[in-house]
Amino acid sequence: MSTVYEQLGGEAAIDAAVDIFYRKVLGDHYVNRFFEGVDMEKQAAKQKAFLTMVTGGPNNYTGKDMREGHRHLVKMGLNDAHFDHILCHLRSTLAELGVAQELIDTVISVAESTRDDVLDR
């Protein structure tokens, strides 16, 4: 069975998804303080790596990177509620791109599996 990554159309489609996803995240006042002062281009590249991973595209995911990359945010108060917001933006991004509900659920479950790493638990 092909991955969501392939069904979406691969690398170029992920670029489009990052555009939509990052716009939602930056526009969300509940979470956007965690993105203040970051280099937008580097951040977008990280989100591309994340979306590539959760859609089953080529990746080299390590929980360790995820943990270290978010530790300073956990110190700023990053918690489950913020993580839920991000999942919500991911879900609506995929819906906007016309991904079938069943596949969205698969992607969300992969993203969900990173929760403890992201929140450093």
Partner: peptide, 10 residues
């Protein structure tokens, strides 16, 4: 390097 799959641009 990081993602080793052409996404993260590290």
């Amino acid at each position: 390097s990081s993602c080793q799959s052409g996404a993260c641009q590290t």
